[in-house]
Design a protein around this nucleic acid. Structure first.
Lengths: 202, 202, 202, 202
DNA sequence: GATGAATGAGCATTCATTCAT
DNA sequence: CATGAATGAATGCTCATTCAT
């Protein structure tokens, strides 16, 4: 009886939190981050202003959670894809991984605009640090790292190189999709892949 | 006589503009951009509030000019350096260019923080588009581009590759100097150079 | 219990709104509209600045409400008077109605200054459009309209003529009371009544 | 020699003043009075800001001159028209006078918006008080007044009645042309004429 | 007379945060 | 847990006016 009740309460709490989360996501996408006031979020979520502060510290807090959640999703999907495809070649795996992310953001420009240059290694690392939630991710990520290790890259360098690949990818994706600078993403992709291949070849 | 007069006025205007410029620079460095109010800037510059709006549209406007001015300076110096050194090898030239910039920002962390990830190709291009002011820069930049061309890179790819080199460099510099992520800049440098060499080798 | 609570809150809100309303009225009367800052209003009302925007959109909004409220009051009283007096003659009714308004503003020059030429048909109509609040007004107004109709005025013309009578009265009241132009109100009144009688005679 | 010179200077002064005048007129018409800054006026006029203050006290000053100038023009034209037409009947003369003004503002809504309810007797009187400039106007106005006098109106009442006719006309013109309230000007005109006739009939 | 750079008071408006209910 | 009225500091921006040249 008591357990049921607390479950219900817990569920209700989660519902409110999610309502805020979704409302914020929608508003950040449509109005942009800085133009979205907490007032807007709570109104859209249908809760009182004070309630917001029960679940999040401030606008930046909910934004951080949003970026983490949305980016983790993409990365998760991308990792799942290369897990499913079973490439022999580790480079093809990375390229496929990158390709998935590129295509994802081609279709989600607004999200890309928001998470902007936060699409970075730091995020990647953060995602990997929540082991409970990202067990499977970690698993696949390790696969990638061990592949590179097998190829003869030094332990020290593997992480750094992966970091650079991710940063480069993030930069190109943002710049070419949002600004078409220096060219469209479709024209950049072959060059990007070429560069990534070079970077990952010993 | 008349000319002298207008010269003096013109000079005075330049002085005021620079006062605002310098004040804003100092404040952005110490307090950060978003914590700096226009009130702070004019107080530090010793001019009236309205004067600010005589020279700049708003805080973002002065920031843009600041980023462009400060970054141009670094790039100019770096280009001058590789011009002076007369390398035979075009890759060495690029590496030397990057090295200068890395070292510069190692000693100017606050500036780096401010111009953040604006240290990018877009900026580079902007600087090159002010021909009157950046004649020498253009000259050396062309040298670099022609070197790559000579090496057999296709016209189409040269710009894209250079873009990626710059973006990667910018990302690594920012991340490693400010966040020491994934490692310190000194530990990242050799790997960065390695990657850049790979990217620029046909 | 719950009802009591919400009643209390509702009451408090009304009190705050009225405080702002009264403060604005006082200030508009003494300092004039354009010289009154929102700062002045909230200071006088003893509430925070933000509170103002909880109840009114801006200075013009509170002004509109003020004009409507104050003018409705006068019109209401004037209508009540002619209702009480039970004239046989419809023209005497109108004259009496006008006379009440003239005398009212003779004793409230400051209010007249504020509502200026807003004392017009538009206002009159606005007031009549809030049926819940102005049921009695509507009732008496209809009496007036039907009187004119009975006299043989065409339906189409009744409204127009009434409009003109009101506009003329408003103009004369403002001009003669505030500017004594072209003469004092006491000297204008007989001529005004004469004109109104002519206008309402078929 | 000296005279020529001062003539030229005087001419130049007049040119500048007129430039400001025309610029202000254009801007008030297009942007509205309160949205027009002195900055806008001087920029459009092609003179320096300080120059404005050489000719006008402030924005209200130039506005007053504008209203007087533009309204005088209309009234002058209307008076000229009834002078030319040589009606026997004084009422027809007044009706024709009003008709001219109505038609004028039907085609100059923007001007009407600006001079708003300033189209009043006060203005009429002001115009008549500048004898040098408005000699002809005075002449025709006197014709009108004497006509009414001849009809048996008492000296005292003539001015008051004329005042009311003008005020009523102004109100109806503004309300019906700008707001179409309570009806369009074309529907209001016959009723207005009817009322005016009644007011002017002994 | 003419200029236009400089001024700075003045003001509306926003919005994160609190807290009594 | 939830509410939402109240707060008031913070701040960008305008614009009439002045005055040295």
């Amino acid at each position: 009886m008591v357990k049921e009740k607390s479950d219900k309460i817990h569920k209700n709490k989660l519902i409110k939190r999610n309502k805020l989360f979704d409302a914020a996501y929608d508003l950040f996408l449509t109005k942009g981050f800085s133009s979205t006031a907490i007032d807007d979020i709570v109104k859209k979520a249908g809760v009182a202003k004070g309630t917001f502060y029960l679940y999040f510290k401030d606008k930046y807090d909910i934004m951080d959670h949003l970026i983490l959640s949305k980016s983790s999703l993409v990365i998760k999907e991308a990792l799942q894809k290369i897990k499913d495809e079973n490439y022999n070649n580790y480079i093809d795996r990375v390229i496929s991984f990158i390709d998935y992310i590129v295509e994802y953001f081609k279709n989600n420009k607004m999200l890309l605009k928001i998470i902007h240059k936060n699409l970075s290694f730091g995020l990647f690392r953060k995602a990997l640090q929540k082991p409970e939630e990202y067990k499977e991710m970690k698993e696949v990520a390790d696969l990638l790292l061990s592949s590179l290790k097998k190829e003869g890259f030094s332990d020290d360098n593997i992480e750094k190189i992966l970091f650079m690949v991710i940063e480069l990818t993030g930069s190109v994706i943002y710049s070419s999709i949002i600004l078409e600078e220096p060219d469209t993403i479709d024209n950049m992709k072959p060059v990007l892949f070429m560069m990534v291949k070079k970077m990952l070849t010993i």
